[in-house]
């Protein structure tokens, strides 16, 4: 799924990052960063309601391409700068975690790279 499609499905607002044509192959919805570090596969998108710089660092460690903040959470300037340095796309949506994950899953974006 292209990042642009995620933006559309979640009616999300792009905060930083320009390349919305990149493909993501899996997604992870979590507020626990260690769970993200344990299970996520390549080229993923992270959905989270957590806002602190470690969210961006965690995503960077996992080579993730995009972070979607749910419940209209807004990243800080420090987070935006960190994400910009690594070319990551940050978006926010007013949807809640369950609904945001459900919409992406229903449109074919799987959890850990499995094919449905």
């Amino acid at each position: 799924m292209k990042i642009a499609q995620i933006k559309e499905l979640l009616n999300a607002e792009v905060i930083c990052g320009e390349d919305l044509e990149r493909e993501v192959y899996s997604a992870c919805g979590s507020d626990m960063m260690s769970d993200v570090l344990a299970y996520v596969k390549d080229q993923a998108v992270l959905l989270t309601g957590l806002v602190n710089p470690q969210v961006v660092r965690t995503a960077e460690m996992m080579d993730m391409l995009c972070i979607v903040f749910v419940r209209s959470k807004t990243p800080t300037q420090e987070m935006i700068e960190l994400a910009s340095c690594s070319g990551m796309v940050l978006m926010k949506t007013d949807k809640r975690m369950y609904e945001a994950c459900g919409k992406l899953y229903a449109h074919g974006l799987c959890g850990n790279g499995e094919v449905r």
């Binding site: 507020d31 626990m32 769970d35 344990a38 602190n52 470690q54 969210v55």
Partner: peptide, 15 residues
Amino acid sequence: SLGFGAGMGLPNMKR
């Protein structure tokens, strides 16, 4: 509340 302390740190390092 900052997203860590789930008891996954050392197991992840080993993993």
